[in-house]
Design a protein around this nucleic acid. Structure first.
Length: 202
DNA sequence: CGACCGATCGTCT
DNA sequence: GACGATCGGTCGA
């Protein structure tokens, strides 16, 4: 098992990074509690020119500032006052690209995930959807800015193969406000995976 | 099934 | 003061 390094995150093509993140393991260790899931759904948010991105138009605010950091850190923000959405910041300094993780297939620490989410069991909704993903992994906005190269939260390659025909590209979810950019095929899912967020799963 | 609705609060105007 | 990169529930066809 190989932890993804700086070179993986610090690249220009965020769409490619989103594609390559499929099949990797996202792992969190908060005070000894280990949880891990296989990434089965991602979305790319492509810098200052993408109307769907928080960094569109080069808006630097206190919230989005972390997106401008060199790739390999977390960007977590609160959505609808309830959900903590987890993004992987990619690209180089001052290029605010990010990949939203939208679904995991739970792999490790499923009991812990159930405790965090209040679910009785993994019923395929445990890690499906960006809000559920963050809750099951114990991620919240206080983790925004954390390095993904450290020990408490990181992404790893365990040799799982998820390329070619097994991957589908679709438009992103919930970005109707982005006009034409809402049609871009920047959402990637592992075909037929049961944990992919159900609405518009294809 | 699909449409709609309430929860809930930080962020930006 | 308005509005979400959501979720889970309800209601009606």
């Amino acid at each position: 098992m190989k932890k993804l390094n700086k070179a993986f995150y610090q690249r220009n093509d965020v769409v490619r990074v989103a594609y390559e993140l499929l099949g990797k393991l996202i792992i969190t260790k908060w005070s000894g509690e280990l949880t891990a899931g296989r990434i089965v759904e991602t979305e790319a948010y492509r810098g200052v020119t993408d109307r769907a991105s928080h960094a569109f138009g080069d808006r630097r605010t206190a919230r989005t500032e972390i997106m401008y950091a060199p790739g390999g850190v977390a960007y977590v923000y609160l959505c609808y006052g309830i959900h903590h959405l987890f993004n992987v910041v990619t690209g180089y300094q001052d290029e605010p690209h990010a990949v939203l993780l939208r679904a995991i297939e739970p792999v490790e620490g499923i009991t812990v995930m159930c405790n965090r989410t209040g679910k009785m069991q993994d019923d395929f909704s445990l890690g499906a959807g960006p809000g559920n993903l963050s809750r099951s992994l114990g991620i919240n906005t206080s983790h925004s800015g954390l390095s993904l190269l450290g020990a408490s939260i990181f992404i790893a390659d365990d040799g799982y193969e998820s390329t070619g025909n097994n991957i589908l590209a679709t438009p992103r979810i919930g970005v109707d406000y982005a006009g034409e950019d809402a049609l871009l095929p920047y959402r990637f899912i592992i075909r037929d995976n049961l944990w992919v967020s159900k609405k518009n799963a294809f």
